[in-house]
Nucleic acid binder design. Structure first.
Length: 429
RNA sequence: UCCUCAGUAGCUCAAUGGUAGAGCGCCCGGCUGUUAACCGGUAGGUUGCAGGUUCGAGUCCUGCCUGAGGAGCCA
């Protein structure tokens, strides 16, 4: 019966058996310190030569980095340990003596680490990030489930573009052309008309030659879509969901945030409501701050960073010009040149983490948009049907998981937020 | 696609156009509280590839390859 390191605090004074890997070892002539990890945490095993059998001492002496083993010993609370606990090792059963491990404890370059991503994820920092990613996913799904959303899975293989803008990954579907999805949104609109409040959680693909710290070729999105919900209510749902996620991580991932040296004072402010400014106000703000920007352009990364600097929590930018947004967004009835949409910009220069809008519900207007954007009736007929058979006001948004993880963890690149990143020059491992 | 920078030992990096080096890791030895432990020793090289200039190129020139950061696009 194995104990896990994560549960060790409840086993002080007891003899336990752990299945572990050797992360590091320090030794002197008569005492050895084994840094052990089992996926749930890290603990130091201690062997004093005069207190263990010669066999145990010898097998410890021969251990190499990342060797796999079962250890038995007594759990002891110790103030000298960063985790507060140590294990006095009494027995070692080597499963495998590992070959020389490529990743030493000294510094490494990005290329080397990415080539060894399958091993790199064992290190404390990567371990902490992936644990936080898991908790973020859990918090989002728990919150949406509590709000009576239904999880719906849109297709990954699609016949055409959802938005018609970005480059898609092309593949064959027997004799037809097919593409990997870049967004499940249009399908989620159909699902919302069937189930009311729905969300998808899955991978999306963009064949863009983007090469920055905020871009992946394959990334994960959460896309809620809600019938009978207008733009304003959608914003309230977004800010409440994200507040819940951040507070959940602060509560459940203290050790991981500490491993990452994350300054959590930036995160403690992240509580609804979030500030809202219109696109017009954002343009004024940029001009006041000395950045040249003309109405009608889209914001670039430096603009988003500058806007975010004026706020202590994520900020919504609303009412963008219709011309720079997707065809399905509903125009503001009071001002048809702008649409009922919002991008949520994270603090500290992390950029856009949510994009959302109220959707066009009027069949005639949608028809008009199809013609303007030269979208074929053949490909989008089913989407048009949603407006013919009981159309209702509805809204939705998409949250980029990796950018959210990157921001909450305080990372400088999204490549560390996903186990095996797919990037412009990276398909291996 | 464009702009900028970089490729030297397993890793991280040095080396005026003149004998290719250090730290870490591996291996051997030492050390009873180490925190990327420390101390001593051994081994380890087609300087990204192909040309060119030169008495002589890791170093200068040209082309290519690979990677990094950024732009555009986006989440």
């Amino acid at each position: 019966m194995l104990t896990t390191i994560g549960d060790i605090s409840a086993r002080v004074g007891e003899n336990v058996r752990l299945g572990v890997w050797l992360y590091n070892k320090r030794s002197s002539g008569k005492i050895q310190f084994l840094q052990l990890r089992d996926g749930t945490g890290f603990i130091q095993g201690v062997l004093v030569k005069k207190n263990v059998t010669p066999e145990v001492w010898e097998s410890a002496s021969g251990l190499t980095q990342e060797s796999s083993l079962y250890v038995e010993g007594r759990v002891r609370a110790d103030e000298r340990s960063p985790s507060g606990y140590e294990l006095d090792v009494t027995s070692i059963e080597v499963i495998q003596l590992a070959e020389e491990y490529p990743i030493s404890l000294k510094e490494h370059g990005v290329e080397f680490l990415m080539d060894h991503r399958h091993l790199w994820i064992r290190s404390p920092r990567q371990h902490a990030i992936l644990r936080i990613r898991g908790e973020i996913t859990k918090a989002i799904q728990n919150w949406l489930d509590e709000q009576n959303f239904t999880l719906v899975d849109p297709p990954v293989l699609t016949p055409s573009s959802c938005e018609g803008t970005t480059n898609l990954f092309h593949t064959k579907y027997f004799d037809e052309d097919a593409y990997l999805t870049q967004s499940g949104q249009l399908y989620m609109e159909a699902a919302a008309m069937a189930l009311g409040r729905v969300y998808s959680f899955g991978p999306t693909f963009r064949a863009e030659k983007s090469k920055t710290r905020r871009h992946l070729i394959e990334f994960w999105m959460i896309e809620p879509e809600m019938a009978f919900v207008d733009h304003e209510e959608s914003l309230r749902i977004q800010e409440n969901m994200l507040s819940h996620v951040v507070q959940h991580v602060l509560e459940h991932c203290q050790a991981e945030l500490k491993t990452l040296n994350r300054d959590i004072s930036y995160l403690q402010n992240v509580k609804a409501p979030f500030p809202r400014i219109t696109y017009d106000e954002a343009v004024d703000l940029l001009n006041r701050e000395g950045m040249e920007f003309t109405w009608g352009e889209d914001f670039g990364a430096p603009h988003e960073t500058k806007i975010a600097e004026s706020f202590d929590r994520p900020v919504f930018i609303t009412h963008y010009p219709a011309d720079i947004k997707a065809f399905y967004m509903k125009p503001d009835p009071k001002r048809p040149e702008v649409v009922l949409c919002a991008d949520l910009i994270a603090p500290e220069g992390y950029g856009e983490i949510i994009g959302g809008s109220q959707r066009i519900d009027d069949p005639n207007l949608l028809e008009e948009r199809f013609q303007q954007h030269q979208l074929s009736q053949e490909a989008y007929g089913w989407y048009m049907d949603l407006r013919k058979y009981g159309t209702v006001p509805h809204s939705g948004f998409g949250l980029g998981l990796e950018r959210t993880v990157s921001w909450i963890c305080g990372l400088d690149h999204v490549r560390e937020t996903i186990p095996f990143p797919r990037m412009l020059n990276r398909l291996y491992p």
